[in-house]
Structure formats: structure tokens, C-alpha cells
């Protein structure tokens, strides 16, 4: 028992090192525009983790983002620069429709015992590389999956939905209201999927930017209904950060509950899934 507790603490420690932004600070992507007209525009994006939204007071999100173009093809990240407080990059918009810009993370954290020595899985281990990352003869394999999606949407011209085609991994948004069609005073409905299925009971937190200049957080906390949907009524125009998490830890995977001391089946002990976005709400 002591052993197990020890390893859970260790995993928590690993998690804190590997993805500090998921817990200690809010990770965000802030686009210079979300609704643009014409057929040849640039946008620039700040990528950072901070306490106050959207102020640069902590660390950059240094991971290279991905760009999904309206026609489904991969776009280019240009002028990527990682500074002390933020990463910045530009995206050249040349197609009509909605772009998705994402920082995705789908990793396995964990540790194992080999020849009496406890070792951590190498950083960047994924489900695909997990089998290769655990050497033969390893025992007490403990793993935790972390699937995190931080993405924003930008529309040139009329909104489109090609880029919302789910990948069926982690938490994903399906627009009922298009996220680039949000107006103060109106209500917007979004559906969330977990691994491709409508996810009931997810916790959705919406926080308006500009935290530094007010006393109260003014957060809106919602829970997805049976069909995975929430409806948000926007109190004011501005940029909002939205975070979607599972309210309670997922049931333990096959790595849990095995007898201590002997070889343990490999598999996810726990899984953490997370979705973040920044939404621009325009004035009516």
C-alpha cells in the first residue's frame, strides 16, 4: 500500500513537471483576429500559460502548433518564436472558411522497476511508443495518459465546419453554434465529444479575459448534458477562455488493482483529458 501511494505521488510529480500548464496555470492561445474578410490575411497568435487571462506573467507554450486549413489540408506556422513569457507565431490565411490552430498533446507518463531500480518513462512517450519504451523484464509498470487539446478557430469569409470533423481522441468540440459566430447577449451551444462520443457530465469553465482589471473572476461553470452539450450566454463582448475537463477522474484502467510486488499488467492507470479554447465574442 505504501508502495502504491508512493508511485501515485511520483506520477503526480511527473505530471507536474511534464505539463505544468494544465494544472498550475491556464494555457491559452490568443489570436489577433477570429473573423476576417478578404482572401489574403495574416493573423498572429500568442501562446502562453499564465494565471491571469490574457496576461503574460508566466511561461510560453513552446510546443509547435498545428494548422488545419478549411479544405482539411495542413497549413503552415510561420515566424514561430519562443520568448520568456510567450510564444508567438503567424498564420497566413489564403483559403475561405474556418481554420483550426491547435497545440495537441497525447502522452503517456509513468514509471517501471527494472533490476530493482525505478525508472521514469522517457518524456514524449505516446501510446504508440509505450510498448517499446518499457524494457523486457520491467515490473510495476504504472502509467497515466494525458490527452490535452488547446485550439482556436479563425474564419476568413463565411464560417465552415470541415475542420471540426472529430478525430475521436480526447475531448473535441462539435459546433452547434459556430465558434466564430458569437455575439454578446446571444446564447451559443457547443457539443463536446470524448473519444468521439457525446460526453455527458463534463465540466465546462468559461472565463472572460481582462482578469487583472477586476476583483471577481466572473467565471461561468457549466456541465454538459446527456448529449454532451452546453449553452453559454455571453454577458459581454471580448475574448473568453474555455476549459473543459472531466468532473471526476476516469475509472482506473487495467494497471490498477493488480497485486503489489509482482509483475503488473501494463495499461493506463488513470487518464486525464482536457480541452481548452479561446473564443471571441463580438458586440452586437
Amino acid at each position: 500500500m505504501l508502495n502504491l501511494r508512493h508511485s501515485i505521488i511520483a506520477i503526480a510529480a511527473i505530471a507536474a513537471v511534464a505539463v505544468p500548464t494544465a494544472y498550475a496555470h491556464r494555457a491559452w492561445l490568443l489570436p489577433s483576429s477570429t473573423v476576417v474578410s478578404g482572401d489574403d490575411n495574416w493573423i498572429t497568435v500568442d501562446a502562453a500559460a499564465s494565471n491571469d487571462l490574457f496576461f503574460l506573467d508566466h511561461r510560453p507554450l513552446s510546443q509547435m502548433p498545428l494548422v488545419f486549413q478549411p479544405d482539411g489540408s495542413a497549413g503552415k506556422v510561420e515566424n514561430h518564436h519562443v520568448g520568456q513569457f510567450r510564444a508567438t507565431f503567424d498564420v497566413h490565411l489564403q483559403q475561405q472558411g474556418t481554420y483550426r490552430i491547435a497545440i495537441l498533446s497525447d502522452t503517456v507518463l509513468g514509471r517501471y522497476t527494472l533490476n530493482g531500480e525505478v525508472k521514469n518513462l522517457p518524456r514524449g512517450t505516446t501510446r504508440e511508443t509505450l510498448a517499446a519504451a518499457v524494457p523486457a523484464g520491467a515490473t510495476n509498470v504504472e502509467t497515466a495518459e494525458m490527452t490535452s487539446r488547446n485550439e482556436i478557430y479563425v474564419t476568413q469569409g463565411a464560417p465552415t465546419t470541415t475542420i471540426f470533423k472529430p478525430t475521436n481522441r480526447g475531448i473535441e468540440m462539435v459546433p452547434v453554434t459556430h465558434p466564430n459566430d458569437l455575439i454578446s447577449g446571444e446564447a451559443a451551444t457547443f457539443q463536446f465529444l470524448l473519444d468521439g462520443k457525446p460526453a455527458a457530465g463534463l465540466t465546462v469553465t468559461v472565463i472572460p479575459g481582462g482578469i487583472r482589471y477586476r476583483d471577481a473572476l466572473h467565471e461561468i461553470t457549466l456541465t454538459t448534458d446527456a448529449s454532451g452539450k452546453v449553452t453559454v450566454k455571453w454577458p459581454n463582448p471580448g475574448m473568453y477562455w474555455m476549459n473543459v475537463t472531466q468532473g471526476a477522474p476516469r475509472e482506473e484502467g487495467p494497471g490498477a488493482g493488480a497485486p503489489q510486488g509482482g509483475p503488473r499488467p501494463m495499461g493506463p492507470l488513470t487518464r486525464r483529458v482536457n480541452y481548452m479554447t479561446t473564443l471571441e465574442v463580438l458586440a452586437p
Binding site: S37, G38, A158, P159, I183, A283
Partner: peptide, 18 residues
Amino acid sequence: EGTKWLRDVRQWWRAAGR
């Protein structure tokens, strides 16, 4: 390049312009 600012006529852009 003038089309870049059409979105600033924002209610029209949403209703019909886009």
C-alpha cells in the same frame, strides 16, 4: 486590400457580407 476591413461593418458582415 480594401476588403480586409469589410468585417468591421460587423452586423452587415455577419448578416449578409460574409
